[in-house]
């Protein structure tokens, strides 16, 4: 059997490394019967188009940023809410597998299945010429963001004007002062922006983003049990390890920026609590509409003994 896996990031991105490892593991675990064919760098599809093609037979698996699945099923947005998940929660295997099951249950009627999550990054603010130590310091700034609606609302209530802009343009725009900052990952800071963004401001957990491992349900269910196990086991092996490796890499990248002279501040508990309560207000729209989702999510945390 052939498993077509597509991705929009460059072949040099670490995500490709994990895809290659996934391919090797699946081949080994299925005794060569499942062959994973990887197409990177948007050669075939960007992640949104690939999601749309799941179920037509053109693609079988995609690992998109979880926000993208909101265009299919808004309830999956729970994982993208500010402060929804933390590194320690996702390192808990009970919670991780429970969350996959919960999120998957929302998209299964749409003939999709979610098999797991990978860590994308815990996003942070990178500013050109203003030092930020508390939320008020961000007032009135133009900041390049990506992200869901709750997130945009939160930005607006901080009196930030969110700007939508291609990732390729943000570095120039920041250098020329067209924007004051970007909301990005440590890798984005170190590799795309560099010291042009001298000031870093990090509120842990404010926007811990994830990749969802999404598979065509009809196709997956039609596989023999051994093949399905091979795929599921490969993910179970890679996902927790990936979480820790990428977290460590991000910490290294931040340290690298500090060594280059960047000024980096992390919100303390008190400041973090203020961000939480602000985010809480904006999540109310989500919780009003999908109250049962919040409830299920919290129950899962309680069952596994983790919370953020």
């Amino acid at each position: 059997t052939e498993l077509v896996l597509t991705s929009e990031v460059a072949t040099t991105h670490w995500k490709t490394r994990y895809m290659n490892e996934f391919a090797e593991q699946v081949a080994k675990r299925s005794k060569g019967e499942v062959k994973v064919k990887i197409f990177t760098a948007g050669q075939l599809y960007n992640d949104q188009d690939a999601l749309a093609a799941l179920g037509t037979g053109a693609v079988h698996m995609v690992w998109p940023v979880s926000v993208r699945i909101e265009t299919i099923e808004p309830r999956t947005g729970v994982i993208n809410l500010p402060f929804a998940v933390s590194d320690s929660m996702m390192n808990n295997s009970c919670f991780m597998s429970g969350l996959s099951g919960l999120m998957s249950s929302y998209v299964e009627p749409r003939n999709l299945r979610i098999l797991g999550f990978l860590r994308t990054a815990d996003l942070m603010f990178v500013l050109r010429d203003r030092e930020v130590k508390r939320m008020e310091d961000l007032k009135g700034m133009k900041i390049r963001v990506t992200g869901g609606r709750v997130f945009l609302e939160t930005m607006r209530s901080l009196q930030i004007s969110p700007v939508s802009m291609a990732a390729s343009e943000m570095s120039t725009a920041l250098a020329q002062g067209a924007i004051d900052g970007v909301f990005t990952s440590p890798a984005g800071w170190a590799e795309m922006i560099g010291i042009t963004g001298k000031y870093g401001w990090y509120v842990p957990g404010f926007s811990l983003t994830t990749y969802s491992i999404v598979v065509d349900k009809g196709w997956f269910d039609s596989l023999p049990a051994t093949h399905r196990t091979a795929i599921v086991d490969a993910i179970a092996d890679i996902s927790p390890r990936q979480w820790q490796e990428v977290k460590a890499e991000d910490d290294t990248l931040i340290q690298k920026m500090i060594d280059q002279g960047a000024v980096f501040h992390v919100a303390d508990d008190q400041e973090r609590a203020r961000w939480r309560s602000l985010a809480q207000k904006n999540t109310s729209l989500f919780s009003e509409r999908y109250d049962e989702v919040i409830k299920q999510f919290n129950e899962l945390g309680a069952r596994c003994g983790v919370h953020n």
């Binding site: 749309a52 799941l54 265009t71």
Partner: peptide, 12 residues
Amino acid sequence: RYYTMGMMTESN
């Protein structure tokens, strides 16, 4: 497939 999946535009 778009219909069964219920995919919407990315913006609002």
